[in-house]
Simulated assay, not measured.
Amino acid sequence: MFALQQDKIDSLFELISASKALYIPVDSDKGTADFKRWSAGTKLSSALKTVRSAKDFFFPKAEKLVEYKKNGTTFEVVDPRKEVEDFVVFGVRACDAKSFSVIDAVYLNMDPVDSYYKNRRDHGTVITLACNEPAKTCFCSTYNIDAAEPAGDVSAWLADGKYYFKANTQKGEAFIENAKSLLSDADEKAVDTLKKDIKAKIEKLPFAHLDMSKFQGKDMLKIFNSKIWDKVSETCLGCGTCTYVCPTCMCFDVRDFKNGNEVKQVRCWDSCMYHDFTQMAAANPRLTQKERSRQRFMHKLMYYPMAHEDVFACVGCGRCLESCPINMNIVKVIKAVQEADDI
């Protein structure tokens, strides 16, 4: 394990940015935090979470898939995957780090591999940061995610005025090697104390250990046909906010845009909460918000786990709890399922 004085963090950022693009959480004028590219004078936010997750770096809200340029009778095909540079994301929390493996299971570990997503994963290095002060809306521990021991290429902790770093992958080891001029060897005493403190705080959170016992494959049809969906969906606006802040939502649409002699094909996020998400030429199988709400939560809590060795497609980040304008969220759904008398 290696350590760096907290007041030297800008020196580390300067070192990283000399060879790679560096992104860190930065406070916004709205009182929230977002990932921004670091430059001299950019200050690291102390906020627990960014509004949107670090998923954006690997699965952007919008990305160009291909570009065609016509010049007379010839066409030039531009592959944007060649334009991606090496980058480092600093300050990723344990929940967001777990979300990468959830998306990896679909875009990397199934055929066909999503080459655009893979390209960004190959170019990116993730430095996670333990959550010293978990929020009341956090429930990552429900899914056995350890906020005190975040995954990533490098795990980091802030304790006793120092940042502590531990490499977990080859990328992480390369990062440590590159930064050794600023780092010093350190024992794990301060980090071990911090971990115990974080775990104690997590145990006191209201949603630390939600009951997930009914979310098993054998109960899928019971949950699907339950009357709870009428109540769960009755106030939903279908705005899609929950899907846009969620670190594991991965649905998208593909559109073509023509500008003179150029055509760009763009992939952009989509949401199963939108009425036209399943619109087909002949019909729409999800006509009401009930069907759309049910699909979202069934996918997170039933369909994905059934296909991926009981791993839930929720990481307990709490963003949907904080963002939904009518206070509808996945925690309420989990509780409704557990309390339902028809499941």
Score class of each variant (00 low, 15 high):
S115A: 13
M250P: 00
L108N: 02
L194P: 06
P325C: 08
D219N: 15
H308E: 05
A156S: 15
V88I: 14
Q338N: 12
Y164C: 09
K30E: 11
C242W: 01
M298V: 04
A190P: 00
A94W: 07
E188I: 05
P247G: 15
D276W: 10
N327V: 06
A21W: 06
E309M: 12
S141E: 13
A135M: 14
K36V: 10
Y23T: 01
S99M: 08
F165W: 01
F297K: 00
E83W: 09
D104C: 02
V315F: 02
P285C: 03
S53G: 14
S17P: 04
N119F: 10
A54V: 09
E177I: 07
T73R: 15
Y304T: 06
R81D: 07
F59D: 06
T142S: 12
W38E: 01
P305G: 03
K162S: 09
E188H: 04
P305H: 05
K64Y: 04
A336T: 00
A105Q: 09
R52S: 11
T128H: 02
K290A: 02
I334F: 05
K227C: 02
D276K: 12
F165H: 07
M220L: 15
D185P: 05
D219I: 06
A174W: 02
M273Q: 15
D187T: 06
D253F: 14
G124F: 02
G31F: 04
K69A: 08
D270G: 10
C242R: 02
M273Y: 12
M110S: 12
C95G: 07
S155M: 13
M1V: 12
D197N: 14
A283T: 15
Y143C: 11
K82N: 11
A54L: 05
A282S: 15
D192P: 01
T137D: 06
K227S: 04
T243S: 15
L287H: 14
R81M: 13
D160W: 06
F35E: 06
E291G: 12
G318M: 04
L15F: 06
A340S: 12
V84Q: 09
F2N: 14
Y143D: 03
L22M: 10
M273P: 05
A33V: 11
C246F: 09
R319H: 06
D253S: 15
V126G: 02
N168L: 12
A179S: 14
D96G: 05
K264G: 02
T288Y: 00
C140H: 09
W269V: 01
M250E: 14
L4S: 00
Q6N: 11
A156L: 03
P25T: 05
W269E: 05
T243H: 13
S141R: 10
K227Q: 07
S155I: 13
D111H: 12
Q295I: 02
S53T: 11
R120M: 08
G260E: 03
D79I: 04
V113T: 13
D56Y: 10
P206L: 10
F13C: 09
